[in-house]
Design a binder for these strands. Structure first.
Lengths: 137, 137
DNA sequence: ACGGATAGACCACAAACGTAGTCATGCGGA
DNA sequence: TCCGCATGACTACGTTTGTGGTCTATCCGT
């Protein structure tokens, strides 16, 4: 609900690991972070955890002598908010040019392209003027 | 080439109007900005223009007693960079979930969906296992 | 029981951001 | 010619972000 929630670039990485596995203690989170990116400094991570708690993006319960953190905001909500603000900023709110750009510029594997096609096929069962259509087997 | 170029949220709005119409004087840019968003303060816009010049994102030539600004970086490059950093941040670098999200969550008109489908069809002329295919009429 | 490793609390600090004000100056109209 | 207004130059300032350090209580092993 709260869109006043502003998650910065670096904070996103924290959130993603917590979303992936929660609850998680700071040590666990730091371990997961440094696993994929050794440049993470533990202190930095802890500061960010504290900030995310301050922002009400994370909550925590004491677990032993440490804290176990849990997300207070859903990943889906944040992804949606971030996506919206991104298209707004970069593409002026117009989604189509963005998709065109992504499909054109980024490299998608043929497999991913197929998945996308399938997705689109499902998405609009009745296109305005489909060249042809056939009932599913 | 320079990826050290960091364009902030607000700066993007400036850049987009300059990309849309360049060269443009500060007054023109401000006019275009306030046209779509009256909350823009002229002074703020001027500060951002100066910052963008400092960042080498914009250049300028004296035009009369004012400056005419022109982009020094292409919109395509910036869009690509922003897109990449966005997927990286929000989707952990994985493009497919992002497209899925966008197609699923955002509202695309049926027409846009068709365009996308067409785009995808062109993109991979030879799909691994097309259910069927038929030559165009 | 004691000393070192640890967790969280609190602090620091520069750079970037968002937002806007002041200053000096030159052009253009009265 | 003189004034004011628009313009760029410079300044201000609180907030956010990225990056880490210090301090203190504590738990665990020896």
């Amino acid at each position: 609900m709260k869109k006043n929630l502003r998650i910065s670039d670096t904070e996103w990485e924290l959130m993603r690991v917590v979303w992936a596995q929660s609850p998680a203690t700071a040590a666990e989170i730091i371990a997961m972070l440094t696993a994929r990116d050794p440049t993470w400094h533990p202190k930095t991570a802890r500061t960010l955890l504290a900030r995310l708690v301050g922002k009400k993006a994370l909550g925590y319960q004491p677990q032993g002598r440490a804290y176990a953190y849990t997300p207070l905001v859903s990943e889906a909500d944040c992804v949606a908010a971030a996506s919206e603000s991104f298209v707004e900023r970069v593409f002026g709110g117009s989604l189509r040019p963005m998709l065109v750009h992504l499909v054109e510029q980024q490299k998608l594997t043929p497999q991913e392209l197929d998945e996308l096609r399938a997705l689109l096929a499902k998405k609009s069962p009745a296109a305005p003027k489909p060249p042809r259509k056939r009932p599913a087997p």
